[in-house]
Write a protein that binds this DNA or RNA. Structure first.
Lengths: 346, 346
DNA sequence: ATGAAAGCGCTAACAC
DNA sequence: GTGTTAGCGCTTTCAT
């Protein structure tokens, strides 16, 4: 069943069918009606591939994320998809696991399917691999990486704002031995969060102890390992700030295993504010970076670029800010004084 | 840059380019080499839409899931995607939130994009809405719903096996007041899990108290509400079996808020075994339903259907079994005896 | 083994 | 306002 079939049955030309379906205003309402009747009756749906072929627009946006099993990302995917569908776009999703190989594959897939734009939500992974896309002038939007340029927009994330709030919150609770568990430092975003931490500490005259900064990998397992490392160190932190919520969950888990009570013995702050954060035990105090807003900004940036007439419009720069949300996982450091000596395993 | 461009530069016809690219064995290696050189040099990627148009195959599989923000599903998506890419397929993902409206939209999108098959991982939601797909003879694979038929395969899930293990485990721990928090009962799978619970209880002569069966909605919030309802009831359960892990997390959260200690005061068992389950506090004992295996079965079923030559092959029936994995969230019921009266808020 | 050409389903000139 | 037709980029007969 194709457009010719519809044309025949509605006793009009294929051009008229096309116009009717695309709601071209000049078409006679009578005919349009006739066309739509046949369309409904036969359950006809235009072939998107044919449309794409002739129009040169696939109405597909690529969405590259780090890791779909990190709950931060599904929330992005969800709102990105919702908005995309509203605009009659589909999304080509790919989760790279921060693996350059898979990133390359992803780029190839995007090009083969002729996506109209790509949102790169990997927070700083190997933009070099995206050269191919740039070459083909595919509109791009990055979270948190590099500058905007021709066809490429950038969502700058204000890490400092939220992280400064977190550090000051901890300081207000009289913490001084504050540890930081970073993400994989080859990610620009992980490095940026760490810098924001260091700066926030120095601003208020708190010592930044190198031994209290350890590298995680944005997974629960990484958080567990990181706290293990911290606990083996000579100086024992009273608070831990984490580069993302999954890391914080790992820290919480490891504390539990070692009989360290949160927040009494150790304050923990996460980063991202995944939905789950409010339900863990204790509820996680964390720095929010709105997934919904991020997704919306990314989609809007792409759409703006696609619909812009001025061909060489250089992409825009957007800003997403972060802020602390207080819950149950932090506590006055003096609380440790109440802990009977030897109540933990080390 | 298109196939003609390649043909010109390699001094062959477009047909030869097409053959070379598709590795048709009869083509002269010399020419093939020449073609590939040009292809590499120019970074040429065939246009998938054009291919799809002429071949009648889009190499896209639809994947319909309930809720991408439920961690159970990202794990399915991840392996489904991985396998799909290996087979040069893309995936059209849609998360319906169990909303019939969005299910309808999803079906329309799938048809418009001419997907080669659809995996329906919604566990029992409104198959009626998929009639349109069936009509068009699009291969379908369901988890846990209905029978296999022409072009439709089914992955039957053996809920009873795992749930029986869970109930017997609880019984062995001397629990008798065992509550069950179901999923939304309009989902066939939720109903099936509940039935498996009831049957498992009866099998071993345990009383099934209607007041101890409450309906949740497979979310954390639902779990919180469900335990609230249970706690308000006249008979107090010593163990709760949940229809999925998110519900169990809600039950754990609510227990925490009300000062009920898990597992000492209340044993909790989940269902699904999401990755997170092993890391929550305490680690969740749960019934595993392998996401990886489910995704693989679904993909294989679709692929088998697509590649089958016999046009009216009636789909196959697959089975996925479930089993209990023991962790930290259950305890001997006698533990409650040690709980000082009034140590909880009610 | 290779090439010429038809045609997949649709849109957009262009002609009327 | 509507119809005729070329052509989007590719695959695949059908000749040679």
């Amino acid at each position: 069943m194709d457009i010719r079939e519809i044309a025949k049955r509605a006793r009009v030309s294929t051009a008229t069918v096309s116009r009717a379906i695309n709601r071209v205003p000049t078409v006679n309402p009578q005919l349009a009606k006739r066309v739509w009747n046949v369309v409904e009756e036969l359950g006809y749906y235009p072939n998107t591939q044919a449309r794409a072929l002739v129009s040169g627009r696939s109405r597909i946006f690529g969405l590259i994320i780090s890791e779909i099993t990190n709950p931060f990302f599904p929330e992005i995917v969800q709102v990105f998809e919702r908005i995309a569908v509203q605009h009659h776009y589909e999304i080509l999703l790919t989760s790279t696991g921060n693996d350059p190989k898979r990133m390359e594959t992803a780029v190839r897939r995007m090009i083969e399917r002729r996506v109209d734009g790509v949102a790169v939500m990997t927070f700083g992974m190997e933009e070099v691999l995206l050269e191919d896309l740039k070459l083909r002038k595919v509109p791009l939007v990055f979270a948190d990486v590099g500058l905007a340029g021709p066809h490429v927009s950038n969502i700058r994330i204000d890490y400092l704002h939220g992280i400064r709030q977190a550090v000051q919150h901890l300081a207000a609770l009289r913490h001084q031995k504050i540890a930081f568990v970073s993400g994989p430092l080859r990610l620009k975003s992980a490095e940026a969060r760490k810098q924001a931490f260091v700066r926030s500490m120095k601003e208020i005259g708190l010592e930044v102890d190198k031994n209290l900064i350890v590298e995680g990998n944005h997974t629960i397992e990484g958080g567990i390992a990181a706290l293990g490392q911290l606990l083996r160190g000579s100086v024992r932190p009273t608070a831990v700030l984490c580069s993302n919520d999954m890391t914080a969950l790992g820290v919480m888990r490891k504390s539990y295993e070692d009989g360290i009570s949160i927040p009494r013995d150790l304050s923990v702050i996460g980063f991202d504010d995944i939905h789950l954060a409010q339900f863990v035990l204790p509820a996680l105090t964390t720095v929010q970076m709105s997934q919904a807003e991020l997704a919306r900004l990314a989609f809007d940036a792409l759409l703006a670029e696609v619909e812009s007439d001025t061909p060489s419009a250089s992409g825009k720069e957007y800003v997403l800010t972060t802020h602390l949300v207080l819950r149950e996982s932090t506590h006055l450091v003096s609380g440790t004084a109440k802990r009977p000596a030897g109540s933990t395993k080390n």
